[in-house]
């Protein structure tokens, strides 16, 4: 925490970002949205918000996420319910991605495969207001086909373009009333960069803490990025 005498108390009433329920948190997500979903494998996946979106019955989503779900959980729930038009991810076909595999083979979902580091950096670029970036990743491979190649200081780079989304759904460890977030171990993964790259950022946090109780040095996502949140502890996911 800050040294004594260096904290100024809040006097104004700060905007309430806590949604009454997961259903309310996702109520304004429209059909056809581009949705970033945090998580890597089973780690840091916003399962409760996924459940809420499935219950709402949204259709035609483009999902940006590293994986395509684990067995019936995570992104696989979206897929199984027919919510997804297209997946943008790095690792679509893990052993446990049976739901996606079946839909893809049946021609019922589109796929864009992006190298994982380029996926993360495209999201970062989208959040940082950049027009893209040059990466050595993918030079000479089919994943660079159709992309511009530029030579800088004698080395070839692929021009990768930014990714943004209408909505990001995020899994955090702690949240305070400002929406400041911490994460839990490797559950951090894509969550912090996705927070920066979506018009609306909806968070499920394991625990809500009082304003001022998080050490400012350990806050990873400042609340300015967060639109609203639910406290996951109160709701059990179907997982």
């Amino acid at each position: 925490m800050l040294p004594e005498g260096l904290t100024t108390p809040v006097t104004a009433r700060i905007k309430n970002k806590r949604a009454a329920s997961p259903a309310e948190a996702v109520a304004d997500v429209k059909d056809g949205s581009v949705v970033m979903v945090g998580g890597f494998g089973r780690g840091g996946v916003p399962e409760i918000l996924i459940d809420a979106l499935c219950d709402k019955g949204v259709k035609g989503l483009t999902i940006i996420s590293n994986n395509t779900g684990t067995h019936e959980t995570g992104i696989a729930r979206f897929l199984k319910q027919g919510c997804v038009k297209k997946m943008i991810c790095s690792f679509p076909f893990a052993t446990e991605s049976n739901v996606f595999r079946d839909l893809y083979n049946a021609g019922k979902v589109d796929l864009e495969v992006v190298p994982q580091g380029s996926l993360a950096e495209r999201i970062r670029a989208g959040g940082a207001g950049l027009g893209g970036f040059l990466t050595p990743t993918g030079v000479g491979t089919e994943l660079a086909q159709g992309k511009q190649i530029l030579t800088v200081n004698g080395r070839e780079y692929v021009l990768e373009l930014p990714l943004r989304a209408d909505v990001a759904i995020i899994r955090a460890r702690q949240v305070d009333p400002r929406g400041n977030l911490t994460y839990r171990m490797a559950g951090r993964n894509f969550n912090p960069v996705m927070c920066t790259a979506a018009d609306k950022v909806i968070v499920e946090a394991i625990e809500e803490v009082e304003l001022g109780s998080l050490d400012p040095e350990v806050i990873i996502t400042p609340g300015l990025y967060v639109t609203r949140y639910v406290v996951a502890g109160k709701y059990s996911s179907r997982v």
């Binding site: 790095s90 690792f91 190298p115 580091g117 380029s118």
Partner: peptide, 9 residues
């Protein structure tokens, strides 16, 4: 197609 993951990077 396949699962590239982080291999290229």
């Amino acid at each position: 197609t396949g699962s590239v993951g982080g291999a290229m990077d």
